[in-house]
Design a protein around this nucleic acid. Structure first.
Length: 947
RNA sequence: GCCGACUUAGCUCAGUGGUAGAGCACUCGCUUCACACGCGAUAGGCCACAAGUUCGAACCUUGUAGUCGGCACCA
């Protein structure tokens, strides 16, 4: 069979995904083994407004590698996919569109019509990210796709809210909150980003003390808030102000009189030692206000303009205009002491970058204390979740939990889960699962539901179990199942999908893969709610991946416009090459994006393609056959025709099979410890260096059918029998390698595997025997310890070293490629045998025409020389050799070895080393010392022979 | 202010208490019948700096410098 000369990823990417999906390979139901262990992962749901970026691609690749690997091992695998409704982002997006299309604001059309619009938008544009996920090749179960706003998940949200409320963990209260004046909503601390202000100023305002000629100076970065001052505070121990305590201030620009109070919060050394107190506009001031029973005077509206309480002159002014005006007025009054430049960091809205205004506001809060304590207990007692890498994430996680504050969970938006609380005419609150239930509680149907929605992260926090049908049953009980809102989000249910079983089967999940920025926003909250509502931790392991940076090591951002679009990279180099690049960078470490890196994996993909091409071109009469890798690989009929059981394995065969098994073992270990890059390196090295560069070259003549094959000395095998055996063997080794590569390079490997003769569902893991043939379900290769052959590895290494040294002579002596020569080899009996047995390969790969193998070197002076660990090599080059050049070559080799010899000598003559180092180490170094000494000796003899 | 990470070949990065590795780039040579997205052969590093622990440190400890993060505070 012949295939194209180069790999074209596009074709494979187009064909296989749809087929996999259609044949149910992604759904756990494909697994026929009733006793199969499960493996489950939930995707961190991307925003419905999102488009794929490199961070997703990295995260998704790691999850898919794990899932495909486990699936091939016969685990009942669920990789659950879904999308987040992304409250603010989505509302902003639809608001913008509404303005553009209909020149309307949400308020113009009302809540119901607006949310209807959002659903329309979602149904029309909300699948961008999921289509992109398909392109990535993710083996997610689309039959279980979830959306945080669908009915079943909303049920879970309401259940959690009601329970927490009833237990007293959720309350409504008036606090200073982070207010975004542009989005006009409250934000949690985690949605606020501190950023340095460009030209921060500190304003010193002077306040006259009533009944004296004295004045008191306070400093502030937000002068406009002085309109809401209700006290000035000093430290109780501050001698400067002692006599003023209890007196009052005549607050300029207002007609108000405010007290001078003492509070330990004030540091005498800082600023002027006197602090203006604005309880309604600053969190610290609010606390002081609580302690001293101060008036809370709100002087701003929700759009950060000043309100009536700020006085008629300021009413309606924007906060910055008001700031200017306050300064002007103070200046006029001679009360502005000074303005200093001041480094100040200001809170910004994560979404719209507007400066946050701390504001007194009535909101819903969740007290996390009980859940926090459970999470901390889990961490301390069971070290769960385990973070990979553990440093520094474990600490970030635990420190945040330890200092956890109440969570502001309400948002002044329309898009999201509306808070299940109803108010009667008197303002009494009834929290319930539905209006009916609330009415029953209230004894009246005349109720109005709370207008706010919940923080997007509230529903995300329930993701691992709400997606699996959790409906509010008691911890540990079987899920009650869920209902889907069919009008809005119809979900196809796979045949055999038992709605009530998912939670029981797949929860808790095995591993979570996510970025470090949401450890607190999301990971911690999943742990807390998971423990409380299911009685179990939602996952054991948390892999925190690194950040993909641009090629200059900068973070990718829209403002810098330095983002790299994964889809463009897919188009240029293929999905598989991109996945290899992402999986090939060390877990948890940031790395700069380089197209060159992808290019090298693109080349690797092509290498795999061409190695397969070669095997297919020479596959007649053979097929993939696992028996061909075991010792008794010759069919009985043939074996019967020979007098002895045949030694069918050449050195190269034993070697590559040993390497294959070692690689399987190492890959398994690497993946178990989430060292994805380690697995990538192992597979790359095995395939390219071991399999292509050496094995294929060694057996090429044999499988092409050019070579006579020696069975034993003087006995040449029957080609008709031997060639197919050799072909089956190379096909099988290739097939095993491709299987191991599949989790990383799903498209290429499927494309090739389908073409290999002899592949069928019989090669599937036992759990998938009746499924349609696909490499996705092939059994993942396991190490067979019996096939690890150290003798073969060391003998093969001797042959490789020999060939390399001869090639080196050829290159350094400038011998034309067409010129053939004789190679003399001196070695001990064992290695004489080894070299003899591999003579045809050595001749071919070293481009020599004759080998002279003996126990002692005897060649003309005009020879190029080299030594290996096991042999002395000479190539007679009468007339071609330049003695000066050869001497230089030899002395360079001697010099190199001598440096090592000196170091070894130094160590071995150190009594401390010999006395204290492990005996094994000492003898290892002694052997090495002897070996190098011998090599140097040989090289020296050769060197002096040339003088 | 507190905490953390990083500093290894020209570049991007692996790595280990005892011979320093890869990919790309560079140099030289190959139209070798799977692959020039290839083959072969070189070259290139006192593993940031200093001190300590150790028989032995690039690896462990401490300090210094640079780079980058996170958190807190901000009258």
């Amino acid at each position: 069979m012949e295939i194209a000369k180069a790999y074209d990823p596009k074709e494979a990417e187009e064909h296989h995904y749809a087929r996999w999906e259609a044949s149910g390979c992604f759904a756990p139901e494909i697994n026929e083994n009733p006793d199969a262990e499960k493996f489950s992962i939930v995707i961190p749901p991307p925003n419905v407004t999102g488009t794929l970026h490199m961070g997703h691609a990295l995260q998704h690749t790691l999850m898919d590698v794990l899932t495909r690997w486990k699936r091939m091992q016969g685990y009942k695998t669920l990789f659950l996919v879904g999308v987040d409704h992304a409250g603010i982002s989505t509302q902003l997006m639809v608001t913008r569109q509404l303005k553009k299309d209909e020149h309307k604001a949400p308020q113009d059309i009302g809540r119901e019509a607006f949310t209807e619009k959002v659903w329309e938008w979602k149904n029309k544009y909300g699948d961008v990210i999921t289509r992109q996920i398909r392109k990535e090749g993710l083996s997610v179960d689309w039959t279980r796709e979830r959306f945080t706003m669908e009915e079943s998940l909303s049920t879970a949200v309401r259940e959690v809210f009601v329970r927490l409320y009833e237990e007293g963990w959720i309350y409504r209260g008036t606090r200073i909150v982070n207010w975004c004046p542009k989005d006009k909503t409250v934000l949690s601390d985690l949605e606020v980003k501190e950023e340095k202000a460009k030209d921060g100023k500190l304003y010193y305002l002077t306040y006259p003390v009533k009944g004296t000629a004295e004045k008191l100076t306070v400093a502030t970065t937000r002068p406009e808030t002085m309109l809401g001052d209700t006290a000035v505070a000093v430290n109780p121990g501050d001698e400067r102000y002692k006599h003023l305590i209890g007196k009052t201030i005549l607050l300029p620009l207002t007609s108000r009189e405010i007290p001078i109070i003492v509070d330990d919060y004030v540091e005498s050394e800082f600023g002027t030692g006197a602090v203006k107190i604005t309880p309604a506009h600053d969190p610290n001031d609010w606390e002081i206000g609580q302690r001293h029973n101060l008036e809370m005077l709100v002087v701003m509206n929700d759009d950060a303009t000043m309100n009536e309480a700020a006085g008629p002159e300021f009413n309606g002014l924007d906060r910055y205009a008001a700031r200017e005006k306050v300064i002007e007025e103070f200046e006029k009054l001679g009360l502005l002491e000074k303005i200093e430049d001041y480094d100040v960091t200001l809170p910004h809205c994560e979404r719209c970058k507007t400066v946050i205004e701390p504001l007194l506001s009535e909101q819903w809060f969740a007290k996390m204390d009980e859940m926090r304590d459970q999470a901390l207990k889990l961490l301390r007692e069971e070290n769960s979740p385990r973070f990979f890498p553990e440093v520094p994430h474990k600490k970030v996680y635990s420190m945040w939990l330890e200092n956890l504050r109440d969570w502001t969970i309400s948002r002044q938006l329309w898009w999201g889960h509306q808070i299940p609380a109803w108010y009667d005419k008197d303002g009494n609150i009834f929290v319930a699962h539905s209006k009916e239930e609330a009415s029953a509680k209230a004894g009246t149907g005349d109720l109005i539901q709370d207008q706010d929605v919940l923080d997007t992260w509230f529903s995300s926090a329930l993701w691992p179990f709400s997606t699996m049908g959790w409906g509010g049953s008691e911890p540990g009980a079987i899920a009650t199942g869920f209902l889907d809102d069919e009008q809005k989000n119809p979900v196809a249910i796979a045949p055999g999908f038992d709605k009530t079983n998912d939670l029981q089967t797949f929860y808790p999940t095995d591993v979570l893969v996510t970025g470090r920025d949401i450890i607190r926003l999301w990971v911690s909250r999943m742990v807390m709610t998971g423990l409380k509502f299911t009685g179990e931790k939602p996952f054991d392991d948390v892999i925190i991946h690194g950040t993909v940076l641009d090629k200059n090591g900068q973070r990718m951002s829209k403002t810098k416009n330095n983002g790299i679009d994964p889809l463009e990279v897919f188009a240029k180099f293929g999905v598989d090459a991109t996945r290899m690049t992402l999986a090939g960078s060390a877990t948890g470490i940031d790395f700069a994006w380089r197209d060159e890196k992808v290019e090298s994996y693109r080349n690797f993909a092509n290498k795999i393609w061409n190695a397969t091409r070669f095997c297919l071109m020479n596959s007649e009469g053979a097929k993939v056959d696992l028996q061909s890798l075991s010792r008794m690989s010759v069919p009985p009929a043939v074996a019967g025709g020979l007098s002895e059981p045949p030694a069918t394995f050449s050195l190269a065969d034993r070697w590559i099979i040993s390497r294959l098994n070692k690689t399987a073992k190492a890959v398994d270990h690497a993946l178990k410890t989430y060292q994805f890059h380690e697995a990538v390196q192992l597979l790359y090295h095995f395939f390219w260096d071991d399999f292509c560069d050496w094995y294929i070259e060694f057996v090429k003549d044999e499988i092409v059918g050019n070579a006579d094959i020696l069975v034993s000395e003087n006995e040449i095998a029957d080609k008709d029998v031997r060639v197919p055996v050799a072909r089956a063997r190379i096909l099988t080794i290739l097939e095993q390698a491709i299987r191991m590569l599949h989790p990383f390079m799903p498209f290429l490997t499927e494309e090739l595997w389908q073409k290999l003769p002899g592949t069928s569902s019989l090669l599937h893991n036992a759990a998938y025997r009746s499924a349609e043939k696909t490499i996705m379900l092939a059994d993942f290769p396991k190490c067979n310890e019996a096939m690890i052959d150290e003798a073969a590895e060391s003998e093969m290494n001797a042959v490789i070293e020999l060939i390399t040294k001869v090639r080196n002579i050829r290159a350094e002596m400038n011998i034309k490629s067409g010129d053939k020569f004789t190679v003399h080899i001196a070695a001990d009996r064992t290695f004489q045998q080894v070299f003899k047995a591999n003579e045809p390969q050595i001749l071919k790969l070293a481009k020599a025409e004759k080998l002279v193998i003996s126990g002692k070197m005897d060649v003309p002076k005009a020879s190029a020389k080299a030594v290996t660990a096991n042999a002395e090599i000479a190539v007679p080059l009468e007339g071609l050799i330049d003695f000066d050049m050869e001497r230089a070559r030899l002395s360079a080799q001697i010099e190199k070895l001598d440096i090592e010899l000196q170091r070894l000598h130094g160590q071995l003559s150190n009594a401390n080393f010999v006395g204290k180092a492990p005996a094994e180490k000492v003898s290892e170094l002694r052997d090495r010392h002897t070996e190098i000494e011998q090599q140097i000796k040989t090289l020296r003899i050769n060197f002096y022979a040339l003088i």
